[in-house]
């Protein structure tokens, strides 16, 4: 039978209607950081390929990485990587049937946000020695 009501059916409420809270924010941040890491990974491959090519090619990639913009990209890459890492651990914990009550779930969301900032700060200090 032809669907006469195509395109006019009511839709379930979407993000515009809900109040933002830590669970929805930490969920969308997981997707944003995961996909944004494509840029970080491509940058890493460029740097590695440059190192395998010639000193001149390496200087170009290294010059970008050590510029203020390159450093900014590195810091945001670390932040994205650590956030996605913690959110992934949270997901594995949830998938095994733990921490699904509201209080624990919200606590884990904040742990991802605050934890990623702490791990990024530790990376800057301990790994990059700034």
């Amino acid at each position: 039978m032809a669907d006469v009501n195509r395109g006019k059916r009511p839709l379930s409420p979407h993000i515009s209607i809900w109040r933002w809270q830590i669970n929805s924010i930490s969920s969308i941040l997981t997707r944003i950081t995961g996909n944004a890491l494509l840029i970080s990974f491509l940058l890493f491959v460029w740097w590695l390929l440059a190192a395998s090519t010639s000193p001149e090619a390496f200087d170009l990639a290294n010059g970008f990485l050590t510029s203020w913009f390159g450093k900014l990209v590195l810091v945001f890459s670390a932040l994205g990587l650590w956030y996605h890492f913690l959110a992934g651990l949270r997901h594995l914990w949830w998938d095994s049937g733990h921490g699904l009550d509201m209080k624990t779930a919200e606590l884990l969301g904040w742990a991802c946000v605050i934890g990623s900032v702490i791990l990024t700060a530790l990376t800057i200090v301990l790994v990059w020695g700034v």
Binding site: W47, A51, P55, F58, D59, N62, L65, T66, L74, A78, L81, F85, G88, L89, H91, L92, D95, T123, V127, W128
Partner: peptide, 26 residues
Amino acid sequence: TISSVALAVLTPLFVWQVAPLFGASF
């Protein structure tokens, strides 16, 4: 799930072993 478990182990190792090389000499 499988790759995320692997990456959960690899990520700290990568940051520890490879990240310090960003900005190092040729």
